[in-house]
Every structure is written in structure tokens, then in C-alpha cells.
Design a protein around this nucleic acid. Structure first.
Length: 453
RNA sequence: GAUCCCAUCGUCUAGUCAGGCCUAGGACACAGGGUUUUCAUCCCUGCAACCGGGGUUCGAAUCCCCGUGGGAUCGCCA
């Protein structure tokens, strides 16, 4: 009863659409809806159409149109037809409204709020069944709802009316949209019937919720696709993650590229319960995709984040490629490159208080570091290998473990307890900076007084 | 309030439509262990769920009903 019913109209080739209103950015929920439509079109060899619902002439802006298109392109969701603008199709809607008026199925409003009198559609008082691919049959009683304004006093059609006219005229076979449109659907079906249009198949996908389980909104922080792009999320990771919100391939696959998603996607595997947007998992997935990026591509995507840092340098002797290389597998979000490599570009970094306590204020830490810097200073060739050999050579000398040297040395060089390999760090910094930073740390330790045990 | 939707680990989910293969599988997160100079990666282990109550049935996470909980929508916004 529930699924299955959508197969019958597969003789028609699939036509679906994404129809955002340009009153803001493309948000995560919209992106997921667009993705499902796109995936379904690609999986079935159908067409994906883009329509801009700009009938709110006050809130719609050209900038938002541009931003939305940019986000869709960034995600790789290319469209086959459009974008069509509803604001350019007023004549069409008016024509159909007139038909309803002529047929006595609609009437003019008594009151006049603007330039024109609103046109109102008489909702037939009867029960309507919405056949939905993800929810099954849903029954509504249209005698419980008020008549529907289809043309506003400003001369623009309302959402439900323009939507139905366009969906019908554009020959859409499946309407895949958010759950929040369920209450609109019985009204729209009444319109389809009044206008003699065939009713398309519906697939209402569950909503994406925030941590507090309410509908995802600005309250939950950054929710625009653009902001994720700016933070250094990869489009493939984003798409992959979004595809798994409300849908799954049925086996245990998680990491799936576009082609694999297209091959696996089907509407009847969309589940009917809402899902919470989990940034942690997105970060994990993004890190996964970053790691798989070839170095050149990774570099090209990461450099913009480093640009500012680099332009502030008075010397250009920092091996940026090497820094990128040693950070490659540690990043989950490209933006993280900035805070995590600050010490490479900045000599006056602060010591993390916890690192100081744990690694610097230990008995003999100053002596160990002094011995180390003396040793390093004598090196003629200063690279990853030579610094490691030199460092290890003093282990026996001092009778300490490798950790006893390496840990405080890392804090001395970076101020942090975690990061790339110590000798990689030394190699990037070079002899002069390495030695002077160790001296700085020794001085710091002495100024603090050595902690007891 | 009215209408509708939904209900499996903290989160995303598999299993639900065609009831037994489920002592409920995977992933993120978390905890522990191994590898590593640290962190991360990688590997291993662990923790952790069928909202409650009634039915139907030889048998229910799966079907039905009632509760409860959550969500969405009730605009001349889309």
C-alpha cells in the first residue's frame, strides 16, 4: 500500500524540479531537497528543472537568485531547464485565474487592499487523498479549510497557485519537496482538479532538524550552503552527507561519490522520519574527502585560507608546500589550517597553559631543552632526518626517554601539545627559528620557576 | 486549539510495506587497547536503541488500536 504506487507512471519520462524562493541563501534543507530531485532525475534519465519562485516582490532579490545558483553549481547540481522566473510568467497565471473565474470556480474578494481585487478559489468541500511515495496515502478533509487566495492585490499570484500552474505546465511527473508542504498538497490537488490538470506523484521528504529537534534555522548557527563552502567543506562531502539525511542505500555504505549515489538512489528508500543535522559526522566525512584529494587540488583549495597569513610575512622563506603536506591528513575542515598552523607564521605565539603545565614545568625540562638546542645549533644540514638523529643522540647522554625531550620541544616550538611530527616542524622552521624558540622556552621556564615534581 | 506527519543506540540509519533469518546490523561521537615522538590516520574492543500499554498471531521492532512524546502547517510568505 505504502510504496510501490509510483512505478505505474514510469512510462512517462521523469521531470522534476527544484523551486527555491530567492529570499535568502540556499540553506541545508533546500540543498537536500534539490539533491534528491537531482539524484532522482539523474538516476532515471529524466530532467531536472530549476524554477525561481519570486512572487513575493518585496522579499525577493536578484542577489539571492545569484547566490542560490552559485551554491547549486558549487554542489554540482546542474539543471537541464531554466531557471524559470515566476515573476516573468504573470500573464500565464492570470489566464488560468480567469478560466477559474469564468467557470465560476473562483471569485473576487469583497475587500480591496491594493491596486487590484484579490482572486479567491472556491475550495470544493470534499475529502482528498494525497498519494505520497514516502508517506503512503494521506487523507484530508477540504471542507475544513478556507477558500484560497490565488491572486494577491498586488497583481501577483500566490505560491500555491503559481506552483500548481507551473508544475502542470512544465510537465512535472514527480513533486519532491519538504514535509512542510504536506498541508498545502490537498489545496493544490483541488486546483489541479479544477483546472483539469493531471495530478503528479508526490514525495514529501522529512525535514532536517537542528540539535534541539526543531526545524533547522538560523538559530542553529550557519545553515547556508555558502557558509559551509566558506569554511572549507568540500562539495562532494556535503552532497554525500546530505544524501544520507533521510535516505540510505540499504546496505552499509556511507562514503559514496556522485556516480555511486546516482546508481543507488531511489525514492522509495527515503524514510519518513525527520533527522537531526549532525555537524560532527559532517566534519568526519569532510576530513575523509580532504584526505582523498590529490595534493595539487588540496593545495589549490586550501591556499585561499592561508593567503592572508602569507601576505603578512616579511620573509618568504617558509616552505608552504611542506606545511600543507604535513597538515593534509589532519584537517577535517580546510579552514582549520589557519589556527592549526599559526605558529609557523607567527613567532610570538602564546603557550597553551595546559601544555605549559604538562610539558614545560617539569623537572629538568629547561636542561633538556638547552642540551637539545646546543646540539641542533651544531648541525650543518638541518632537515627532518638530521634533526631526528641529533635529538635521539642525546637520549643516552641524558638518560631520558624520547618523550621527555620531544614533548617539551613541541611546546617550545608550537605552544601546543598536538600537531605534526616534531622533526617535520623543525624542518619547516629551520635552524635559526628552532633554536631561538627553544631558548625562548627555556627563558620562560626559568621565569616561572621549576615546578615540584 | 485544529489538521496532518513521525516514533530503532546521544546522532545518522539498516531491518518495517511482503511477521520468524534480529540474542536488532553499520556509521559518527564517546571509552579502552594497539601503531605513532604528540595529535590525527589506521587496526581492535567496548558502551549504547526497538516510547508505553493493549490486541492479532504458534511467533511482532515489524500488523491493528489507544496513550504518550516530538515535528510541521494553519498569511493577499514561499
Amino acid at each position: 500500500m505504502k510504496r510501490v504506487l509510483h512505478m505505474q507512471e514510469n512510462q512517462k519520462s521523469v521531470r522534476v524540479r527544484f523551486a527555491p524562493s530567492p529570499t535568502g541563501y540556499l540553506h541545508i534543507g533546500g540543498a537536500r531537497t534539490a539533491l534528491f530531485n537531482w539524484l532522482f532525475a539523474r538516476a532515471s534519465g529524466g530532467k531536472f528543472i530549476l524554477r525561481i519562485e519570486d512572487t513575493d516582490k518585496i522579499r525577493s532579490t536578484q542577489e539571492d537568485v545569484t547566490r542560490i545558483l552559485e551554491s547549486l553549481k558549487w554542489l554540482g547540481l546542474n539543471w537541464d531547464e531554466g531557471p524559470f522566473f515566476q515573476s516573468e510568467r504573470k500573464g500565464i497565471y492570470r489566464e488560468y485565474a480567469q478560466k477559474l473565474l469564468d467557470a465560476g470556480l473562483a471569485y473576487y474578494s469583497d475587500e480591496q487592499r491594493g491596486e487590484y481585487k484579490a482572486v479567491i478559489f472556491k475550495i470544493p468541500h470534499k475529502k482528498v487523498v494525497v498519494k505520497d511515495i514516502v508517506h503512503g496515502d494521506m487523507e484530508f478533509d477540504n471542507s475544513l479549510i478556507k477558500d484560497l487566495v490565488i491572486f494577491k492585490s498586488d497583481g501577483y499570484p500566490t505560491y500555491n497557485f503559481a506552483c500548481v500552474i507551473d508544475d502542470a505546465l512544465m510537465g512535472l511527473t514527480h513533486i519532491i519537496r519538504g514535509d512542510d508542504h504536506i498541508p498545502n498538497t490537498p489545496k493544490q490537488i483541488a486546483l489541479y482538479e479544477a483546472l483539469g490538470f493531471p495530478v503528479p506523484c508526490f514525495a514529501h521528504v522529512p525535514l532536517i532538524l537542528g540539535k534541539d529537534k526543531s526545524r533547522l534555522s538560523k538559530r542553529h548557527g550557519a545553515t547556508s550552503v555558502q557558509s559551509y563552502q566558506e569554511d572549507g567543506y568540500l562539495p562532494d562531502a556535503m552532497v554525500n552527507f546530505l544524501s544520507l539525511l533521510g535516505w540510505s542505500p540499504g546496505d552499509n555504505r556511507e562514503i559514496m561519490g556522485l556516480d555511486e549515489l546516482i546508481k543507488s538512489f531511489s525514492l522509495d528508500r527515503i524514510n519518513s522520519n525527520n533527522s537531526v543535522f549532525d555537524d560532527e559526522k559532517l566534519r568526519w566525512m569532510n576530513g575523509n574527502y580532504i584526505k582523498k584529494l590529490p595534493f595539487d587540488e588540496y593545495k589549490a583549495k586550501t591556499m585561499p585560507f592561508l593567503k592572508e597569513k602569507i601576505s603578512n610575512l616579511n620573509t618568504t622563506d617558509v616552505d608552504v608546500d611542506y606545511i600543507l603536506k604535513i597538515m593534509h591528513e589532519r584537517l577535517r575542515v580546510l579552514k582549520d589550517i589557519v589556527p592549526q598552523t599559526d605558529y609557523f607564521f607567527n613567532d610570538d605565539f602564546q603557550y597553551d597553559p595546559k601544555a605549559v603545565k604538562k610539558r614545560l614545568l617539569k623537572p629538568n625540562a629547561d636542561k633538556i631543552l638547552t642540551t637539545l638546542s646546543d646540539k641542533l645549533e651544531k648541525l650543518d644540514i638541518f632537515n627532518e632526518q638530521t634533526t631526528e638523529v641529533a635529538t635521539r643522540s642525546i637520549l643516552d647522554e641524558l638518560g631520558v626517554s624520547a618523550g621527555a625531550i620531544i614533548h617539551p620541544a613541541r611546546v617550545a616550538l608550537t605552544g601546543l601539545t598536538a600537531g605534526p611530527g616534531l622533526f617535520e616542524i623543525m624542518a619547516v622552521l629551520g635552524k635559526t627559528k628552532t633554536v631561538s624558540r627553544i631558548h625562548r622556552a627555556v627563558k620562560f621556564i626559568k621565569s616561572q620557576g621549576v615546578a615540584e615534581c
